[in-house]
């Protein structure tokens, strides 16, 4: 498979602190890659390494099959980005802000009007950015990232500060781009719901480590239903089930059955009853993606 972004063992240390550890990111062409992780898990540090803003302590970063260390400028010609908070020059107008980037990128002037129209800022083109709301600044940042029609778009928390209608607009835009232009998009967020609605591939980062990387469908598979049993002396009951060869897990005083067919549930219940345990409740629980995400990113309990 052709990977637009591929990192091998990318690691970044700040002094003793390990920000990103042994990251093997693989982003296929034309995908919307959702980069998920709680605050401080290393998303922005990773993005900075991808853009050559930071050098990895060790490991390699390849974009479009080229090494960022050797061909940074060639790579960046085809990458548009918005990192963390949007950067802008408050004393300049929206148009002038884009003009400073346009000069460097060397694209025709009409692109400025085009990208302003895309993010719906045409009316504010000649207003100073100082007076913009956070959402408008965010749109301006996205407009700047789109100026040179990049093949890879890297957006760090792109819907930050946007109002609901703005979020929907940007979401539609992000979904549209790969279809229309074949663009590959890397999208970071700490909100699963957002990634869920846009991404086709997901990578989950926890404490600087990539703990999951696969398609969103694979992740949804984890969202399967389970049957939970509330019984008396539950741990003992769980052991008795295991002794009879019924697959079950024990968690916080409830027994979770892995197999959900009617017969298996009936079998488990009758076995418990025969062994003299009282069955209080039999419930069907559906794990949401949110639960899975929380479970995956939950810090290990201190022993």
């Amino acid at each position: 498979m052709e990977y637009i972004v591929e990192t091998k063992n990318a690691t970044k240390n700040f002094g003793k602190e390990k920000a990103v550890v042994g990251l093997d990111l693989q982003i296929p062409k034309g995908e919307i890659y959702g980069f998920l992780g709680p605050n401080g898990s290393g998303k922005t540090t990773t993005i900075r390494m991808l853009l050559g803003l930071m050098k990895p302590t060790f490991g390699s970063v390849r974009i479009f099959g080229k090494d960022i260390k050797k061909e940074k400028i060639e790579i960046l010609k085809r990458v548009g980005s918005l990192v963390e908070n949007p950067s802008y020059y408050p004393h300049l107008t929206a148009y002038e802000n884009l003009e400073t980037s346009r000069k460097i990128l060397g694209v025709p002037k009409k692109r400025i009007h085009e990208v302003l129209a895309i993010v719906r800022l045409s009316d504010a083109a000649n207003k100073k950015v100082k007076g913009f709301s956070l959402g408008m600044k965010q749109r301006l940042g996205i407009a700047a990232a789109l100026l040179h029609q990049p093949d890879l778009l890297i957006l760090d928390e792109p819907t930050n500060g946007l109002d609901p209608s703005g979020i929907i607009e940007i979401r539609e835009l992000i979904k549209r781009l790969p279809k229309e232009t074949g663009m590959t998009i890397l999208l970071s967020s700490h909100l699963l719901a957002e990634i869920d609605q846009m991404a086709t591939t997901v990578g989950i980062l926890r404490k600087g480590e990539l703990i999951f990387q696969d398609s969103i469908e694979t992740m949804r598979m984890y969202a399967k239903q389970t049957i939970s049993l509330n019984v008396s002396s539950s741990e003992k009951a769980w052991r008795s089930l295991l002794a009879k060869g019924i697959k079950a897990e024990f968690e916080k005083g409830t027994i979770l059955l892995s197999e959900r067919s009617n017969e298996k549930v009936a079998q488990a219940v009758s076995s418990l009853v025969q062994d003299g345990f009282s069955v209080y409740r039999v419930q069907e629980e559906k794990k949401s993606l949110e639960d899975i995400f929380l479970q995956m990113t939950k810090e290990e309990q201190a022993v």
């Binding site: 853009l51 803003l53 960046l76 990458v79 990192v83 950067s87 802008y88 020059y89 408050p90 460097i104």
Partner: peptide, 15 residues
Amino acid sequence: NETNAWKQIIALPVS
């Protein structure tokens, strides 16, 4: 420095 625009310029294709 005001809005940390360094990151924006350095992420453009310039050395």
